[in-house]
Nucleic acid binder design. Sequence first.
DNA 1: CGCTTGTTTCACAAATTTGTGAAGTCAACG
DNA 2: CGTTGACTTCACAAATTTGTGAAACAAGCG
Lengths: 175, 175
Amino acid sequence: MTQRNEQQPGPEQPQGESAGEDGYPPEVADFVERLAADLTEAGFPRMPARVFSCLLASESGSLSSAELGERLLISPAAVSGAVRYLSQVHLIARERQPGSRRERYRVHAEVWYEAMTNRDAVLNRWISTFSSGVEAVGPESPAGRRIAESVEFLTFMRNEMAALMERWRTTRRES
Amino acid sequence: MTQRNEQQPGPEQPQGESAGEDGYPPEVADFVERLAADLTEAGFPRMPARVFSCLLASESGSLSSAELGERLLISPAAVSGAVRYLSQVHLIARERQPGSRRERYRVHAEVWYEAMTNRDAVLNRWISTFSSGVEAVGPESPAGRRIAESVEFLTFMRNEMAALMERWRTTRRES
DNA sequence: CGCTTGTTTCACAAATTTGTGAAGTCAACG
DNA sequence: CGTTGACTTCACAAATTTGTGAAACAAGCG
């Protein structure tokens, strides 16, 4: 049987999306699923990964809940859960068009910058945990020195990453 | 200062093994669990996270399967699964002492360097996936440009991280 | 050689996670 | 104001993951 994706032939045309977007060709779907698989393997929850990938591969970078459900063949509830997760970790923004009930979800223009900023919060938490560990085992013990080195490494990383992201940003801007 | 190592002390049999095993005070157990929780939250499987944390907090940086089970109150099977995972991702090394059946699991001396090297492999995979995505959506489309930028970012990161790790290593060595 | 002990494997039970249908909520439109 | 349609929440079913006991396996030791 033909594996064409179900295009809901509703009376309302999905507007807001550029004209070429109406299709969702299999190659794109393949890419979306492959990327989602990579992300999932890295510890990302499945549905958020799929939704994120789908948004990234969309023309305008933003889709409505209905469009997402249509492309990914998932229920509105699944979309809802996924977008809630994604906006909590600041990977997407929700935007409401004034005269419409349709909410649109958009990948942040500087996704990577955002993602890295999130990591920064995690890093700080780890630094705190490791620091408490140094005290717990005693700073003068071998374990204490080992854990203290971890604190140093993480601090190093946090600082360098901040610098790195700044560098990326300016490089981007001038291109 | 007879801070006894995790070394098997002799023919004595550990009876009534509990969390309060000497050489493993509650503060340390707390740290281990807290760190494991942080790692788990970051997508790390639970048992590997606990085992890794426990090794990191141990005096010698290496423990036997029995010792791990004792400290973490888990079955040999759970230890086995966790250490297999950890050695697959190159976070620990297994070492066999010549005259003993006891295998010891050791956190790599340069854990962080190792961890980052792993990330490098993941990065490459992502770069490959994103690259295929550019073709899938068409390089000239907005989506194509968005995904191409991701490829650039990931490549940037891969290169910079390599440089960064080298810098960390030399900084370490000279201290 | 076989016993003894530490480790791995296997099958299964428990717990957690995932995704769905259906009811509920809210706001734009007639 | 009531209707309508888009999104959310809730309770539950399915699927996956986790960890265990028990049996199998291997290697030192008597």
